[in-house]
Amino acid sequence: MDRTIKITIVEDEMVIGANISLQLSSLGYEITGILPRGKEVLAHVKQNDPDIILMDINLKGEWDGIQTAEHLQKEHTIPIIYLTANADEHHFNRAKATNPYAFISKPFKKLDLQRAVELTINHIQNETDNTTAIQETAAPFILSDSIFVRHHEKMVKVVIQDILYIEAERNYCRIHSKGKEYLLVMTLKDMDDKLPNKHFLRIHRSYIINISQIDEVAQSHVVISKKAIPVSKAQREELLKRLQTI
């Protein structure tokens, strides 16, 4: 990137936050702020528009770091790097569901921090490069029984019944169909608004599924074509209702 990368630090131990800030500033990054509470992050992000957020998982207060990330991702697609002194399986799985770009275990060295940030920037640049390769006209034409998507400069017909699930990838969504995948310049919310409700249900902030393609239903996820897809608590009841009507 040609401009200075802006980083927000969310850390309730201010000595650690200040130390991270000094280290990143010495590497040439701009620190937009050090925030001790998750609920402060949303307003800060709207005002400062950071490129990366360093998020302590074990924040004190009403929201821990993972809950803060979940709230943040409802409105923003900012890469998150988690800081944690507690890397147990439960926290890791919760954190993993928010698709972080990296984990840094406390205590960490300056080199660990530097490499995590550099890898994240590299991912951001690659995503930007890939975006230019996908035409902005790649929005699909959605009919009652099929979707036409742009693929290699052509519009390709994807039969709705063949779609397994659709996954959010930042400002894109990826259609997983039988044997093929298609990446579209379209948010999952926009896709959800256009798809026929008869076949599809958004069961998680990152996933829309084709209900008829479900192989298994578990307490917290469904399985489609050997892929375990999480189901949010809010959507589980609706999913069970829809399954009863098939």
Rank of each mutant, 00 (worst) to 15 (best):
residue 47 Q to T: 06
residue 47 Q to S: 11
residue 48 N to G: 07
residue 48 N to E: 13
residue 52 I to D: 00
residue 52 I to F: 01
residue 55 M to A: 00
residue 57 I to N: 00
residue 60 K to G: 12
residue 62 E to V: 02
residue 64 D to V: 01
residue 65 G to N: 06
residue 65 G to Q: 05
residue 74 K to S: 08
residue 75 E to G: 04
residue 79 P to M: 00
residue 79 P to R: 02
residue 81 I to M: 11
residue 82 Y to S: 05
residue 83 L to A: 07
residue 83 L to C: 05
residue 84 T to D: 09
residue 93 N to F: 15
residue 94 R to E: 06
residue 95 A to R: 06
residue 95 A to P: 07
residue 97 A to L: 12
residue 97 A to R: 13
residue 99 N to E: 13
residue 101 Y to D: 10
residue 101 Y to F: 04
residue 104 I to N: 08
residue 105 S to C: 15
residue 105 S to E: 15
residue 106 K to C: 04
residue 106 K to N: 03
residue 112 D to N: 08
residue 114 Q to N: 12
residue 114 Q to E: 12
residue 116 A to N: 00
residue 118 E to M: 02
residue 119 L to F: 08
residue 125 Q to V: 12
residue 126 N to Y: 11
residue 128 T to D: 13
residue 130 N to V: 10
residue 133 A to I: 15
residue 136 E to Q: 12
residue 139 A to W: 09
residue 139 A to D: 08
residue 140 P to R: 04
residue 141 F to K: 14
residue 143 L to G: 10
residue 147 I to L: 12
residue 149 V to Q: 00
residue 150 R to E: 09
residue 150 R to A: 05
residue 156 V to D: 02
residue 157 K to L: 11
residue 157 K to E: 13
residue 158 V to M: 04
residue 159 V to L: 12
residue 160 I to R: 06
residue 162 D to F: 02
residue 163 I to W: 08
residue 167 E to A: 03
residue 167 E to M: 00
residue 170 R to S: 13
residue 171 N to Q: 14
residue 174 R to C: 05
residue 176 H to N: 08
residue 176 H to I: 09
residue 177 S to G: 09
residue 179 G to P: 04
residue 180 K to H: 10
residue 182 Y to V: 09
residue 187 T to C: 00
residue 187 T to L: 01
residue 188 L to P: 02
